[in-house]
């Protein structure tokens, strides 16, 4: 489902003496449907960078990243947008939304973008918010005013609203209490069970052990660290 072949990434900092920083080189691995792979490595090893490359958020200089057959390194923006809408989900560590949009609509939006009718999308959103213990009185408020943990849960609800065949999870259990952590892990297990290919970053070792089938140490692809 997700396949990386000889993937490399450099940052060129034009405004700092055109310094070229090689962050990742020659990454190759694949994730099958129903499989969850953890990216590991020390802080700064490039886990988030690699994940952002797979999402198309960071430009990849060399190699191929195929998701459901589409090589996002060489795709038009509109194909990547379509991929993100239909196939590839991403739960980042930060919630980025238009202020004042009610939480319920924030969570329902990925479904609305797929053309799901408003009431159906909201039903699904309500179910997820309930499951993640966001009190109903908050649903009509914008999540921008919520606490960090609440925002994270809204973000997860949004990320799981649509049943993406491929998912990227960046620290999904960070800053969650035990009960909500449990809910998130079961959501991940459900996604695996329905055949989603998942790549995750988990600092939470117990969580990683529970949901991930294998680990990939990004550190070995990082020039300078691996050397």
């Amino acid at each position: 489902m997700i396949e990386l072949k000889d993937v490399s990434k450099t940052f060129t900092l034009h405004n700092q003496g055109s310094a070229v920083i090689e962050v990742i080189s020659d990454v190759s691995f694949a994730v099958a449907p129903g499989e969850c792979v953890a990216l590991t490595g020390a802080s700064g090893a490039g886990k988030s960078t690699l994940m952002r490359m797979i999402y198309g958020n960071y430009l990849t200089q060399a190699g191929e990243i195929r998701i459901g057959g589409l090589d996002i390194v060489r795709s038009e923006p509109r194909d990547i947008i379509k991929l993100r809408r239909d196939v590839l989900g991403y739960v980042s560590q930060f919630l980025r939304v238009v202020p004042r949009v009610p939480t319920l609509d924030v969570v329902a939006e990925p479904l609305r973008a797929l053309g799901v009718p408003a009431d159906e999308a909201q039903d699904r959103a309500s179910a997820l918010l309930t499951q993640l213990n966001i009190p109903e009185r908050l649903w009509s408020l914008s999540p921008t005013t919520f606490s960090g943990g609440e925002q994270q849960r809204v973000n997860i609800a949004r990320g799981f609203a649509h049943s993406y065949p491929a998912m990227l999870l960046d620290e999904p259990t960070a800053s969650l209490d035990a009960a909500n952590r449990e809910v998130v892990l079961s959501l991940i297990e459900d996604a695996k069970a329905r055949g989603a290919a998942i790549i995750g970053i988990f600092h939470d070792e117990a969580a990683r052990t529970r949901v991930c089938d294998r680990e990939i140490d990004v550190g070995r692809f990082t020039p300078g660290i691996a050397a």
Binding site: L13, N15, R52, G56, N57, Y58, L59, I80, I81
Partner: peptide, 17 residues
């Protein structure tokens, strides 16, 4: 390019600035 890609990983010197 993609909006978030250009904003988060700008390639050109001026975009970075």
């Amino acid at each position: 390019g993609l909006t978030d890609q250009v904003l988060d990983d700008p390639q050109h010197a001026y975009s970075q600035l």
